[in-house]
Every structure is written in C-alpha cells, then in structure tokens.
Design a protein around this nucleic acid. Structure first.
Lengths: 196, 196
DNA sequence: AGAAAATACTAATAATCGTTAGTTTTGTTT
DNA sequence: AAACAAAACTAACGATTATTAGTATTTTCT
C-alpha cells in the first residue's frame, strides 16, 4: 500500500491527528477503531504504530492542544486593559471562530475528554477549572463595576460556556449563515442578556 | 446473589434504566460495560438478560423517552396562545428543570444519541429536527411581530439549544446555586439577549 | 406444601479490540 | 548500486466485549 501522503501543510503525524479528530468527532473516541483510522489513511492498522504510540495518545494530543490554545488566548485577554464586556466578547468570538476553523479538534476536546486516562483527565480538568475561574472573575468584575446585571457569575459563565461549547456546526447550518453572522449573533445574544 | 430490589417507585426495568443512565452519563455508552451495569445492580451480567433485550435497547429507551417527553411539552406550548417570548421562556424553563430533575437520562439523550443504531438514529434525528423547527418558528414569529431583535432565527435557536443542552450540572455547582436560580438566570440571560 | 414462573447462577462462545512480532517493501543517502 | 532507515505488510496474540446455553435457586400462586 502507498505511504501516507504528506501534503504541503503538516507532517505525517498532523495528518493522522486530523483524521483521528474527524473520526472521533463523528463516531466518538471509543466507537472509533484503530482499523478505521488506518483505513482513512490508506494503510493497515499495525502500520499506524510506526507513527503513533497508542490510540489513547491521539486523544490526549488533541485535547491538550486545544486546551493550551484556549488558555493562551485567555492569558492575552486577561492581560489586556479592556472592559469586562470587551473581554467577554473576545472570549465568545474566539470560541466561535476556533470552533468553525478547527471543528473536529475542538469538538473532540469538548465532548470526548471523559475518555482520557485518569491521570491526564485530572490535568485536563485543571485547565478547564482555571479557564472557567478566569471568566467568572471577568463577569464578577463587570457586575461590581455596574456594567452587568446583578446575575450570579457562576450561572452566567455556565450559560455562556455551555452555549459556545455545545455548538454543533453541521454542514446543513454552514449553508444557512456565515461564520461572521454566527459570531455576531452569539455575541449579541449572550452579551445583551447580561449588560445593563 | 440477591434479586434486584424493587423499591416503592418503579419496576425492575425502571431501576435498570436508571442505573444504566447514570453509568452512560458518567462514562459514556460505549465505555460502559454490561458487567458494570450488572454490578451496580448487585447481580451477574448474564442475569441482566432476564430483564433486557440488549445493551443497545437501553440506550434507545432512554433517548426516546426523553425525546417524547420534550416533544409532548413542545406540543402543549405551541397550542397555547402565549406570546413568542412566553413560549420561549417556557421552553427554556422546561429544559433547565428537566435537566435538573432527570439529569442522567437527559444528559445521555443529549450526548450519546450518536451511538444509536442507524435506523433508530434517523428516527431520533427526526424528533430533533422537528423540535428545532418549532422553536425557529416561534423565534421567527417574535421577530415578525417586532417583539424580538432582527436576529437570524436559526442562529438564535442554535444558541439557546446549545446553552440548555450543553449544561453540565456537577455536584460542585449544585451547592453554589439552586435550580430556581439557574432557571431564572438562564431565562433572563437567553431572553434579554433577543427581546427588543 | 407443591407447582409454576421468575430470576439468579456458572460456563462458555464468537467477535472485536488495541497492539506486538517479524518480515518485506519503499525511499533516501552515499 | 549498495547500504541504511523509514514505513509498509501479514500473522497473530491476549484481553475484553456482549451475549447465549444450560442449570440452580428463589419467589409467587394455588
């Protein structure tokens, strides 16, 4: 069988990760077999192990790549001297944009992290909790400065994160509206609901 | 080994379904083994088959029970002569309340439906699409009557459903606020974002 | 109490899983 | 072209899976 074709963008590992993310999203991590992944690459299952350590490793790399990406963006936003509203808007926009440009990976990170091995799962949840805590602080700050309505910060963050993380972008919807429209509408919807 | 204890509420099948929903939520459908489910009931795995047809059947019953429940509520709401805003509020409140009183089942229905067998999956998606279409019509009606802002109905519904379906109620959050607070906050957040 | 039905058990099966071993082919370097 | 490394292949393994077969036990009914 032919070798894995290395396109201009990305190494062999990148291609494997991309296909893995696509399958994990469509079928779920547990329901995706190594043989299916190999077939999507045009090789036999054992050949995969010339490139990867294990199936579990693939999920880890996907989840943590996304987590680190979101964390890096969060740090930039926190360090900026913007209002709470602007910060929240930037966070929402980043989520929507990331989800649309990197759908498979983000979706897998958001929906399949439970399948991480115990040790890695705890590390992943640390990222999550820190991330949430930062947004809670932004919302609390906005409430304190009378910028936001007097809502419970924890619930507000739960609502926002639930909305942006739960988004399922299907091909169907891709034709109904553009990413820009999705981004603007969600910002308006989620932000107008809390700004005084 | 002892028989499955039938409590005052519910038949044997109900107890099995309840435990199955709890495990499917915590670990995912594929990652939950029949042996684990049996152990949670205090019996051996093969004994389960005196009560159920298959593991897949359990997921089906959970998913469709939830789908039918939501559909029944939707029909009541549609037939009511309320404003679009009131209808939307009723839908959001129903989601939050259902999720909190029946967390495992609703969560499984929202997150594990991809594991349904092909035939049943199509039927399930029919429920989903019809459900979404009804909300889109309510939102479109609200926009037409100048009750809502001039948003794209499809995106608005995507946002609302994503928010209420993606909600993950952890024990941690249960102590931070009551269900009533969660319900009120989400209604306010999601409705204030679209009402003019 | 005895019969019938329900439900538990042990043992085992076929299928599928991720992965390893060992070998051959392909591509690269000298 | 020879040598080496990378990456493919076939074959197979051990573990785990849902499920069935066959049997013993418990509960229910008369």
């Amino acid at each position: 069988m032919a070798k894995i074709k290395v396109l201009q963008n990305g190494t062999k590992k990148d291609i494997i990760l991309k296909n893995a993310a696509a399958l994990f999203r469509k079928k779920g991590f547990k329901a995706t077999t190594v043989r299916e992944l190999a077939e999507s690459l045009g090789i036999e299952a054992p050949s995969l192990y010339n490139h990867i350590g294990s199936k579990a490793e693939l999920l880890q790399e996907i989840c943590f790549a996304v987590a680190i990406d979101y964390t890096a963006n969060m740090n930039i936003i926190i360090d900026s001297n913007e209002t709470a509203a602007k910060k929240l808007e930037a966070i929402i926009r980043f989520h929507v944009r990331k989800l649309s440009t990197d759908f498979d990976r983000v979706f897998v990170s958001d929906h399949e992290w439970k399948q991480l091995p115990k040790k890695k799962l705890e590390e992943f949840l640390m990222y999550r909790r820190t991330y949430e805590k930062h947004i809670v602080e932004i919302v609390a700050d906005g409430i304190e400065k009378k910028l936001f309505k007097n809502l419970i910060p924890g619930i507000t963050v739960l609502t926002i994160l639930s909305a942006v993380r739960g988004l399922e972008l299907t091909q169907r919807h891709k034709n109904e509206f553009t990413i820009e429209q999705l981004e603007d509408n969600m910002v308006q919807h989620l932000l107008n609901g809390i700004i005084k």
